[in-house]
Design a protein around this nucleic acid. Sequence first.
DNA 1: GCCCAGGTATAAA
DNA 2: TTTATACATGGG
Length: 276
Amino acid sequence: MKVTQLNGTVRVDGVTDLDLAQTLDCGQSFRWVEGRDGFTGIAFGKRVTMRLDGESLYIDNATAEDFESIWKDYLDLDLDYGKIRSDISKLHPVLDEAAGYASGIRILRQEPWEALCTFIISQNNNIKRIKGIVERLCESFGDQIDGGYLFPSAQRLASLEREDLAPLRAGFRDKYILDAAKKVVSGEVELEKCRALPYDEARRELMKIKGVGVKVADCVLLFGLHRVEAFPVDVWMKRALETLFPDMEPSDFGEYAGIAQQYIFHYSRMHPELFG
DNA sequence: GCCCAGGTATAAA
DNA sequence: TTTATACATGGG
């Protein structure tokens, strides 16, 4: 990758295996908005706009230092997704087929607390409404920066009561958000520890939080802590597995199971007729 | 009105 | 241990 600093924009050449829509608007992060100049979002204290032209990635409102310290990691550009996709394709003929349906997806390295909060909000919910709740959460309790609001800290949310969250219209999830904030602030749940913990222990650590079951825990591990072996299974994925991979368990998908899951998810969404 | 949305807590079998 | 139901809200 070659990094060039323009005015307020960074250009990165040689970016492969990346599709911004597949990566930023696929239900792993809920704060990116597509506009005329690309996808605009806020992470790690910065608000940027990204667009891709061939293998050139442009990031507005960023410096070369920002790219090196934030966005390269955020987009997981050091991981060879071409190789991983090739390896996954060899596991099963259906995976070979599925891998073509989201070949530009990457697993973001999001901030863990944000991932935890947003996936608590995601339960029994739809993407459009999740985005609305997250937006109101940031506007209500996040620090203001140029052009938007940061995701509110756990400390800030831990100081609130359910009635304070009423304007979010998050429904029954408000109490789960507060429980998560309190347990993260008190140290009863240590998110960073979950990066290195054995997978089952990391899952149990997260499930100490009310409203965090196996699905939310796996999403937080995959999308917030980059545990790419995590394989979130929802109702839809369960049907996809039964139909397409009757002889396989989630644990059979290997060390990059989470990436395989993304391929399967997109593939199955494109072929709902496969499930009757 | 009814159904569903990338689920989970709770109570009962 | 497994299975049913409520849960808040909003769009189709």
